[in-house]
Simulated scan of single mutants.
Amino acid sequence: MYQPHVFTLTADGYRGPAPSWPAGAPSVWLVDTEQVAGTVRSLAPRILDVSELARVEKLAFRADRDCYTAAHVALRLLLGVRQGVAPDAVRLTRERCPSCDGPHGRPATGGGVHFSLSHTRGVALLAFADVPVGVDVERVPEPRVVTEIAGQLHPAEAAELAALPQEERPAAFARVWTRKEAYLKGEGTGLAGGLNREHVGTGPRPLGPPGWTVTDVAVPAGYAAAVAVETAGRALAEGHDRRK
């Protein structure tokens, strides 16, 4: 289980360390989006770009606006510290999609930093690395959601879920969903890559697709999360990550 860094804000911004990582390993940061909501609302107009601010305005619910704002303000603050630039000067782009070559692949920025961002009401996760990385956090779903979507998973994963007692299925489904989405985001295809392509498992220990290491991330009760990092067959350096 990977123990993330906790992102904290002062009244006028971030004053903590820059993300750092050994080769081939991720640096993962947890944001309590409700706790920092008031501060990021005041910071956002000075930090987010026009497209990000427009996206905030399109969200119907305040909780969703606060969550998106907190995640993107934290991303720009951490990247800015890492790159030695003001957060509003961080240049965010998209790589080409490996499936269709469209302009909607992995998010990217200058300076040799790979990153990934995920948020759901109350929590955001950010991951940084020197190699492609993906991260995902989700709320544990209701049982009906598991029933509706389980058939779209890899056949082995669907069978694993079906073999569990019904009360254990939501947590197991959340594990496999976040592992799979973290991997697909790291790969650059997202859910368009297909939920049934790779077997990452529903059990306590994830399985990594070839060339990737997938690790569960410790998050508050009621959520599940995972990070995936491209390792090209290398295991994460022992003693240099924050897994517990």
Rank of each mutant, 00 (worst) to 15 (best):
Asp101Cys: 07
Ala11Pro: 00
Arg96Asp: 15
Arg106Asp: 06
Gly102Met: 03
Val131Gly: 09
Ala74Asn: 04
Gly111Cys: 02
Lys58Ser: 15
Leu117Asn: 02
Pro107Ala: 06
Leu59Ser: 11
Ser42Thr: 15
Val73Gly: 04
Gly16Pro: 01
Val40Arg: 00
Glu52Asn: 03
Ala60Cys: 10
Pro22Arg: 10
His5Leu: 13
Asp136Ser: 10
Gly24Trp: 00
Ala25Met: 05
Leu43Phe: 02
Glu34Pro: 10
His5Lys: 10
Pro141Ala: 07
Glu142Tyr: 11
Asp130Trp: 05
Glu138Lys: 11
Ser51Ile: 00
Asp101Arg: 11
Thr93Val: 13
Val36Ile: 09
Asp88Val: 13
Ser27Arg: 07
Pro103Ala: 13
Val131Pro: 04
Thr33Phe: 07
Phe115Tyr: 14
Arg96Asn: 14
Thr147Met: 11
Ala60Pro: 07
Leu117Ser: 03
Asp66Gln: 04
Val85Tyr: 00
Asp32Cys: 12
Pro17Ile: 01
Ile47Lys: 03
Val31Gln: 06
Thr10Asn: 13
Ala25Asp: 08
Thr120Tyr: 09
His119Arg: 11
Gly38Pro: 00
Val146Ile: 02
Gly112Leu: 07
Ile149Phe: 15
Pro22Gly: 15
Pro87Tyr: 06
Gly13Ile: 01
Asp88Lys: 12
Arg106Gly: 06
Val135Trp: 00
Gly38Asn: 09
Gly110Ala: 15
Gly102Tyr: 01
Asp66Arg: 04
Ala124Asp: 08
Cys97Gln: 08
Pro103Gln: 01
Val31Asp: 03
Ala108Leu: 01
Gln3Tyr: 06
Glu138Met: 07
Thr33Cys: 13
Tyr2Pro: 01
Phe61Gln: 08
Ala54Glu: 09
Ala23Ile: 05
Leu59Glu: 09
Leu117His: 02
Leu30Ala: 10
Ala124Trp: 00
Val145Ser: 13
Leu53His: 05
Gly80Ala: 02
Leu79Asn: 05
Cys100Asn: 08
Arg82His: 12
Thr39Gln: 10
Tyr2Leu: 15
Ala127Gln: 05
Trp29Lys: 02
His104Phe: 00
Glu57Cys: 12
Val50His: 12
Thr147Cys: 00
Ala108Cys: 04
Ala23Thr: 12
Leu53Trp: 02
His119Asp: 05
Asp49Asn: 14
Pro26Val: 04
Ile149Asn: 06
Leu92Pro: 03
Thr109Cys: 15
Ala18Gln: 05
Ser42Ile: 07
Ser99Ile: 14
His5Pro: 07
Leu78Ala: 08
Arg62Cys: 00
Val135Ala: 03
Thr10Asp: 13
Ala129Ser: 15
Pro17Cys: 08
Ile47Ser: 01
Gly24Phe: 03
Ser99Pro: 04
Gly102Asp: 09
Val36Ser: 06
Val50Trp: 04
Ser20Ala: 13
Asp136Trp: 08
Asp130Gly: 14
Phe128His: 01
Phe115Val: 08
Pro17Arg: 14
Ala63His: 13
Thr33Gly: 14
Leu92Thr: 07
Asp49Phe: 05
Glu34Phe: 15
Ala86Leu: 14
Ser51His: 13
Ala70Phe: 05
Thr109Arg: 09
Thr69Tyr: 06
Leu92Trp: 10
Thr33Asp: 08
Leu77Gly: 02
Pro132Ser: 09
Arg96Leu: 15
Val56Phe: 12
Glu148His: 12
Val133Met: 03
Ala25Leu: 10
Pro26Asn: 06
Val137Trp: 08
Arg46Thr: 14
Val73Trp: 00
Gly111His: 08
Leu9Arg: 00
Gln35Asp: 13
